[in-house]
Amino acid sequence: MTTNHYTLKVNGKEHQVADAWAGESLLWVLRERLGLPGAKNACEEGECGSCSVRIDDEVVCGCLVLAATAVDCEITTIEGLAPEGELVDVQEAFIEAGAVQCGFCTPGLLVTIDKLLETNNQPDDLTVREAISGNLCRCTGYGRILEAVNLAAAKRREATS
């Protein structure tokens, strides 16, 4: 088994990854090597979106990124959305709208919605539904999730006005 040494920049902090199997996904390395279990592991084939993380400006499935190739970029996970002990508007909105049931899809949804609102803080319903179409909630709590997006969008508009 070939090992690999590389550096990943996650949530603004550089992490050394040593003695890792070259085939490990970014999701695996985040959770099992770097102590960042926020991104969830469910399907490992890009279906469910529970592993959604941000690489530079794009939201991608962490399970479909070969960790050793994710060097020289900014990786942001749910742990890095807000400073320690604080919440971003989307997290507050999820709590206020009761948009969390089992919670497994929540980190991926938060990362996805945070990015959506960054590009568009007044998204229409279709835009929201398409933006979160890759984040499956098997509790099927979409009504409150959509409510939370509207709430978060309003918070963000208020903050930027």
Binding site: M1, G23, G46, V65, L66
Partner: peptide, 24 residues
């Protein structure tokens, strides 16, 4: 390895030869 959306699924499932060379 381009976007990884096909190849990584194979790697995650352990379908690939340990001796493979990958070019990203």
């Amino acid at each position: 390895l381009a976007g990884g959306t096909d190849l990584m699924v194979q790697i995650n499932r352990g379908y690939l030869n340990e001796l493979s060379t990958v070019i990203a």
